[in-house]
Design a protein around this nucleic acid. Structure first.
Lengths: 363, 363
DNA sequence: GCCCTTTGGGAAAGCGTTTTCGTACGACCA
DNA sequence: TGGTCGTACGAAAACGCTTTCCCAAAGGGC
């Protein structure tokens, strides 16, 4: 008598107690199976009953428990998104697109940032595994073999940006860095630049290495043999850009243009130049990569190479989803191509002296 | 005979099949209860058995299923983070801090961005409810009453930045905007500015309104009656800043300094000024708010008001956690104070003519 | 040596869903 | 009217884990 489980004078609408589909079922005078079917709009349920069920659901504003649902259905409706650094504006812009698409398709997304630390990666993956993500989009450096093994064993679909192991269940978003970078180099060459420096990204980051390779190739294509001294290592941060430009400035034979592996670097470069008293683009031209939003309003507005965040987000999501929805097909393996292209703004111009030279020539 | 559920010659290590604590239990010759106790380091379990269990777990690298765990324990270990716009660098910096602390305490975090659209808010909340978040940090505009009701009914702890309803289970992070903004106004006044304009943030955003109020108050404190024309509405975006400065520029009696409700606005303002050919700080001074990372390298480096992202993240997390861990105590209701302070860089200086004026005066 | 206490570990209930399977009922045709 | 479907609904078994409850065995006091 001391504990009475159900007080008799309890109104049916009393929402203070536990609320599950069982409660809904009781109140609507149907079975829980019918409630489930109604909610999921699956199978055929008599419109009359459905209406009754919906009414109760709305009255109590019942919200189904995704965890329970996931447990039994084996579908967590969760994707992981692994990025290198959330404070680089490129990623928030990408996240925005990815989230939008994911939500549209009923997925939720778990974001983790490795902060360029390979050790953090395994923790992130582990956490995602615990939450039973159905797939992971990896937009950071390469993954180590044991980790990859673990993911493969669990058959978690993966999508890599740019570079990834060639295995079933793994998609790779191929970015055509070369196109945009060649345009950039050609643009500079057409303006008269020959000494074009390159500030690279982190060594570990595949996409950064690809950009570097594209630079070298494009230079050769323009008939310029890049001097090793023109290539300095950055780390895709503002500070890295400042430091890299400092290095460049210390050289005897100053480059007349600098191509940066990303926009953050370029902004750092712009700043260092400003500090040094050099004018952009009068004294030196600068080109970025990514076309982050803020590049439009730097001083001067940054000429940069655009790579569509939305395109990437969409491709990554599609790759993941197609593997989840049709796991035994190989269509998930198809490769996606992301294009890049130059956007000319105001940070590029003729190298110093060229104008005079041209003018003299024309008279 | 057509479907044989368990092939007889199956090695015990075969990890291809379902893996749960039952499997572990079987392989370690203990009960599933012991496995659970071992994993959770709860109650006393014989070290010898524990070792056996851990060995099996590691051999199969078993990862417990958080969903199942959440279902039975009623603890999802999930917090929601609702922000207004992920592409504003302030938020990623905040997310980074929040995530770090959350992960440290075993929580995962679900991020949603309302994009300044109140309608999206209810969708976000709904999704979070479905995932059974244990608390939500709301860093966007105010929440509407019915939504709040829904959350209150489910007893979901909430923490608001700056402004929020006064209810049990709701914490509010009070930001002392006035301190930083008064410093800014005093700084400008000391330099000789009187005509100090203010570019506000979105009307709906409480924190933006508080900043505006702090500006007005600070102006009066400095003995300046702000002209209504000095106050123009921005929206905390780059474009908003550009537009707002355009409005200001169109006025007859141009302000000599402009204080912005956030750094993105200030960067827009800087850009517009650059476009117009006005020099900062020679012709006009600019001050931002937030001290986002990039403010250090704008041209010129932005004088701005700093508000610690980490402090906010930590306070928000603590508020949420304390309410979760001790739900019936009132300690969750205590208020947290966040300070702001001026960081002087190079976008502020004497108003045009003042230097000459001063010089003349001193001779 | 007996009884009581303490301690470690197992059995089983339950968390909130989905989903399979079975059944009752109405419709349709002969 | 009787038989055969097809359809709509309910009962119950999972999903993988935590946690309560209980029992066995060991230890200690008399």
């Amino acid at each position: 008598m001391t504990n009475d489980p159900t007080p008799p004078n309890q109104t049916p609408e009393d929402a203070s107690e536990r609320m599950d589909i069982r409660t809904i079922a009781r109140l609507a005078n149907v079975s829980i199976a019918t409630v489930s079917r109604t909610i999921n709009r699956v199978s055929t349920v008599n419109p009359k009953m459905a209406k009754r069920v919906w009414e109760v659901i709305e009255k109590l504003d019942f919200v189904p428990n995704t965890q329970a649902r996931a447990l039994v259905s084996g579908r967590s409706k969760l994707f992981g998104l692994l990025i290198s650094e959330i404070t680089n504006p490129f990623f928030p812009e990408l996240i925005q697109g990815f989230e939008e698409i994911a939500v549209e398709h009923g997925y939720e997304i778990l974001i983790s940032s490795t902060n360029h630390d390979p050790k953090r990666m395994s923790h992130c993956i582990r956490r995602m595994l615990e939450r039973k993500v159905e797939g992971v989009a990896i937009m950071t450096f390469g993954i180590e073999e044991p980790l990859l093994e673990q993911l493969a064993k669990r058959k978690v679909p993966l999508v890599f940006i740019d570079v990834g192991p060639d295995r079933p269940g793994i998609s790779v978003l191929k970015v055509d860095y070369h196109h945009g970078i060649r345009q950039a180099v050609q643009h500079l060459a057409a303006l008269g630049h020959r000494r074009i420096a390159f500030v690279s990204g982190p060594k570990l980051l595949h996409s950064a290495q690809s950009r570097l390779a594209a630079y070298t190739k494009s230079m050769h294509e323009c008939g310029i043999v890049p001097d090793p001294g023109w290539i300095v290592e950055g780390d895709h941060t503002l500070e890295g850009g400042v430091a890299a430009m400092g290095q460049l400035l210390a050289q005897d034979d100053l480059a007349t243009a600098v191509l940066c592996s990303n926009d953050m670097t370029a902004i750092g470069v712009l700043h260092k130049l400003y500090r040094t008293g050099l004018r952009v683009p009068d004294d030196i031209s600068v080109i970025g990569f990514d076309d982050i939003h803020i590049a439009e309003v730097t001083i001067p507005p940054l000429t940069t190479i655009q790579m569509s965040r939305f395109e990437i987000a969409k491709a990554a999501f599609d790759a993941l989803q197609s593997q989840v929805e049709s796991p035994n097909q190989l269509i998930g393996k198809r490769e996606f191509n992301i294009s890049t292209s130059l956007i000319v703004r105001e940070s590029t111009s003729y190298p110093r002296g060229t104008m005079e030279h041209l003018r003299k020539k024309s008279t």
